[in-house]
Computed example of a mutant assay.
Amino acid sequence: MKSVGTKKKLSSGQREELLGALKSRFEKNMNRHQDLEWAKVKAKLEANPEKLWSLNEMEESGGEPDVVGHDQKTGEIIFFDCSAETPKGRTSVCYDREGLDSRKEHKPANTAMDLAAAMGIELLTEEQYFELQKLGKFDMKTSCWVKTPADIRKLGGALHCDRRYGRVFVGYNGAQSYYSARAFRGSLRI
């Protein structure tokens, strides 16, 4: 993720490159958004440059964001990270700052919650992760931190999800743990 911490605006070249990648992905995966047209998505993106910046952060870190839905009540278009495996540019992170601060040694550089906030996105919830898995087979070799309910987090745990043996699993670890094959998937509403 090259642009975290910089001005949250893309150059015209970056914007055109990202819009081209998003359009191509959108057209290749129509099963994810059957009732939407690219022109409507593009208009929303062009009207929200800060959201386009967040999508670029998702793209740069290996998330391959794509449209997965449309909120009929708010009119928002919903993007999820749709890379086959967990985004490579976000691995080896603890769940949150409290988990990171509790480590005595071998601290990773960052946390899933802090990175997501810096990118302007939210971690997928368990429910969103299960919805994503209805659109394809994701995380067959990796896993993803998901937004953990407060009651579990208060006890020191954090949840992660993956797909193995033809099923989607929810597991847990201490929030201070981190793995080279675990990152997080994000969502963004525009």
Rank of each mutant, 00 (worst) to 15 (best):
K104A: 03
P87M: 08
L135W: 11
L159P: 02
Y129N: 05
K154L: 07
R164Q: 14
M119P: 00
V93T: 14
I152K: 14
T111V: 06
I121F: 03
W145P: 11
W145L: 07
P87D: 09
I121N: 01
G171E: 11
D96I: 05
L124I: 08
L100G: 00
D96F: 07
V146G: 05
S180E: 14
G166D: 13
I121D: 02
N110R: 10
G174S: 13
K134D: 08
V146S: 01
I152W: 13
D114Y: 01
D114A: 15
R90A: 02
E105V: 12
K141R: 11
S83R: 06
Q176H: 13
E85S: 08
G136D: 11
Y179V: 03
V93N: 11
L124M: 13
E98M: 04
G171N: 15
G156I: 02
R167M: 11
G156P: 07
G171W: 06
A84N: 03
A183H: 06
Y165L: 10
G157R: 07
Y165Q: 09
K107I: 03
K104G: 14
F169I: 05
G166R: 09
E126M: 11
K88M: 06
V93G: 01
L123W: 02
A109E: 15
V170C: 14
G99I: 04
E122Q: 14
G89T: 09
K137H: 10
A181I: 05
R163W: 05
N173G: 03
T111R: 02
Q176F: 12
W145C: 07
A158Q: 02
E105I: 11
H160W: 15
R167E: 12
S102N: 09
H106Y: 13
K107E: 10
K137N: 11
P149M: 07
G136Q: 09
S143T: 06
G157Q: 08
G89I: 09
M140H: 02
D101F: 06
F138Y: 15
T86Y: 01
C161L: 02
L155P: 00
C82T: 15
Y178R: 02
V146E: 05
T142G: 02
L155T: 10
I121V: 15
D151Y: 12
I152N: 05
A116G: 08
Y165V: 00
I121H: 02
N110H: 10
H160G: 04
L123E: 08
T125E: 09
C161D: 02
S143I: 00
R167S: 11
S83I: 03
L135H: 10
R97D: 13
G156S: 08
